[in-house]
Structures are given as structure tokens and as C-alpha cells.
Simulated assay, not measured.
Amino acid sequence: MIRACDVDDLPEGEAVRVLAHVPISVFHTEGEYYAIDDTCSHQDASLADGWVEGCFVECPLHAASFDLRTGKPTCLPAKRPVRTYPVVVSDGAIYVDTAVQEMTA
């Protein structure tokens, strides 16, 4: 597991980018925390820089949208999902379990 940040450092509706084996975005939305690959599957853009609405993030480059719960794209131009990672909150810090990767087909 890697430490992403303190809970207090990630306000509702925001994201933080962390480096692991690949860049990962951690989002705080609707009272939950989600972690997905940071790089859009359509083109090289940081999803942490995107717009969060509910459980979805819109890529800042070409407006592809991804479901933070599943990693699945919800509209074009993205056609491939991004990996999701389990998030654990412990002692006021947010951790991402990078050993467990989920890829939905």
C-alpha cells in the first residue's frame, strides 16, 4: 500500500495524483474515496486534472468520462477502461492498495 495524503488534504470534489508503478489519481466525492489510473485511456492526460461530478471524472483533454467505481468509460472518445484500486482510510490518512488492480472488460 502507498500513502496518498491526509484526509484533511483532499477536500470533497477534489483529486490528488500519486506515483506508484503508474501514476494514480485519488478522488474524494460523495463522501467516498476512489483510486484509478491517472492517465486517460484515450490519450495521455491526467485524470486528476479533470472535472469530478458525482462518481464520474471528465478528462480535461477531450472530455472522455470514467466511472470512478468501475473505471469504465461512459462516453467517447475513450473506449478502454482504466484500472481501479482499493482505497483504505486509516488514522487520518488515505492509502491506495496498488497490489490489487481491477480491470473491467
Score class of each variant (00 low, 15 high):
R80V: 13
D44N: 13
G71H: 03
Y33S: 01
P73W: 03
F66L: 09
F66E: 00
G71F: 00
L61H: 10
I36E: 00
S46M: 06
L47H: 02
E12A: 02
S65K: 15
F56Q: 08
E53R: 13
V7R: 02
M103W: 05
A99F: 07
D91M: 07
I24V: 15
T70E: 03
E12Q: 11
T39A: 07
S41T: 11
Y85M: 04
L76E: 14
T74L: 14
C55K: 13
D37V: 04
S90N: 10
S90L: 12
L68T: 01
V88D: 10
Q101E: 10
D9N: 11
V22W: 14
V88A: 09
V96R: 03
M103I: 13
I36F: 06
S41Y: 07
A45S: 11
C55Y: 09
A45Y: 08
V100T: 13
D67F: 03
G50T: 05
C59P: 05
Y33N: 06
Y85Q: 05
D37F: 06
D37W: 05
D49W: 04
E102I: 11
S90T: 10
S46V: 03
A48F: 12
A78V: 11
E53P: 05
G31D: 10
L68S: 02
L61R: 08
C75K: 12
H28M: 03
A35I: 02
V57C: 08
D91P: 01
Y95G: 03
I94F: 08
L61G: 03
Q101V: 10
R17D: 07
V87M: 02
V82P: 00
Y34A: 00
W51Q: 09
H62F: 02
G71D: 04
E53K: 07
D49P: 04
T98S: 03
V100H: 14
D8E: 15
M1V: 11
P77D: 04
M1I: 09
E53Q: 13
G31W: 08
D37T: 02
H42T: 04
Y85I: 05
A63K: 13
D91E: 15
F56C: 09
L61I: 06
S41W: 07
C5T: 15
V57R: 00
T104C: 09
A45L: 05
A15T: 05
C5V: 10
E12R: 12
V96T: 00
A35V: 06
S65I: 09
E53L: 08
Y85G: 01
C55W: 08
G54Y: 11
P77R: 01
Y34P: 05
V18F: 08
K79Y: 15
T74S: 12
Y33V: 02
P60A: 05
T98H: 07
P23D: 08
E14W: 09
A63E: 12
V100G: 06
V89L: 08
H42I: 13
E53H: 11
S41H: 04
D9R: 04
A99M: 09
